[in-house]
């Protein structure tokens, strides 16, 4: 399975990127906040591995990993985090608002669950335009308590839309543990209320994620309607920059560190001989170089002119429809 090496490459890139962002936030090069994806890499990587470039995803506030896995350019992602002109949104969006429609990324989102109806609408559009694409809608455990989650799943099931709802259950909505917020052991059971097929998967096992999401995507593409996947996982950093992690124990964190999706994949690859120790360190170096290149790129990119903030409120009239 040579593609496993590609997964590791993507996961390492996400991990190094997030670790670097954490430092850059602390150093003040990145203003505001950031929500880091480290620990959850297997979910985005396994999921995006079964999607084509034309397939859509919607992402969340914790979205860097989704973007990288869908094929985003780390230079432009980093530049956006810096608020620079070469960022994906020329500095207008920042960490929680980035998109690249050309690779099917319809946007990360600063509102918990806010992208769920948008993803559902993209799936409706696919069905009405007969384009055979599929949507994967990423969201966290916190989003399953939002009204739009329920409204959207209901519509998707009713209209048999080509969408996979991918819930990354990392156990905490900011500080609130999922067991204090949802009276269910498995969040996938939420889908049962909408007569939607569902599965729970180990979100730290990239192969398991790929298998489950792959089946869900295939059936959605074949016209058999939506599917709900709950991936159980854990974020290694706190919720955001200011988080002291008072709500969870260091023991719990250590238990999940032991289930690190990258270490697990590395272990498999080394054991099976698919990757040599030298190959691994080459991959490590490659990820590091790419991230450092992105940091350099972001540093050297200019800040937008103040006037640029006044541009682009409306699509000019007469532009016509997006192809």
């Amino acid at each position: 399975m040579p593609e496993l090496v590609d997964y590791l490459r993507t996961m390492l890139l996400i991990r190094r990127f997030e670790e670097r962002v954490d430092k850059l936030v602390a150093q003040g090069f990145i203003k505001g906040t950031s929500h880091l994806y480290a620990g959850q890499e297997a979910v985005a990587t396994g999921t995006c591995s079964v999607l084509s470039r034309e397939d859509y995803i919607t992402s969340t506030h914790r979205g860097h990993g989704h973007f990288i896995a869908k094929g985003g350019d780390v230079k432009r992602i980093m530049a956006e985090l810096f608020g620079k002109i070469d960022g994906y949104c020329q500095g207008k969006g920042g960490t929680q608002h980035m998109a690249d429609f050309s690779i099917g990324h319809l946007g990360s989102n600063g509102i918990t669950g806010g992208g769920i109806p948008l993803a559902t609408g993209a799936a409706l559009s696919i069905k009405m335009r007969h384009t055979h694409q599929v949507v994967v809608c990423f969201f966290g455990d916190g989003a399953v308590n939002q009204g739009v989650f329920h409204e959207s799943l209901n519509m998707a099931a009713l209209w048999q839309l080509p969408i996979v709802y991918l819930c990354e259950n990392n156990l905490y909505a900011m500080s609130t543990p999922v067991w204090e917020a949802v009276p269910l052991r498995d969040l996938a059971l939420r889908a049962a209320a909408y007569n939607m097929p569902h599965a729970t998967v180990d979100g730290n096992d990239v192969v398991a994620v790929r298998e489950v999401v792959g089946e869900a995507v295939d059936r959605a593409r074949a016209g058999h309607g939506p599917f709900f996947v709950e991936a159980k996982t854990y974020r290694f950093f706190g919720h955001s920059r200011s988080d002291q992690r008072l709500y969870r124990s260091r023991e719990e964190e250590a238990q999940w560190q032991a289930k690190d999706p990258i270490l697990r994949l590395q272990g498999t690859l080394l054991e099976t001989g698919l990757l040599s120790p030298e190959g691994l360190s080459a991959l490590e170096d490659e990820a590091m170089r790419e991230v450092e290149g992105a940091v350099e790129f972001a540093h050297s990119s200019p800040l937008p002119s103040p006037e640029a903030g006044m541009e682009g409120l409306y699509v000019p009239e007469g532009r016509g429809v997006l192809a």
Binding site: Y56, F101, L106, G114, I116, P117, L118, A119, T120, G121, A122, A123, L124, S125, I126, M128, R129, G147, V148, E151, S152, N154, M155, L158, V321, L322, A323
Partner: peptide, 22 residues
């Protein structure tokens, strides 16, 4: 649609940005 104003507008938005004119 079902009685779901937030999703009605959100779904329409998702359709709009992907080529429909809801």
């Amino acid at each position: 649609t079902p009685v779901s104003e937030a999703a009605i507008v959100g779904v329409a938005l998702g359709a709009a940005v992907t080529g429909m004119r809801p």
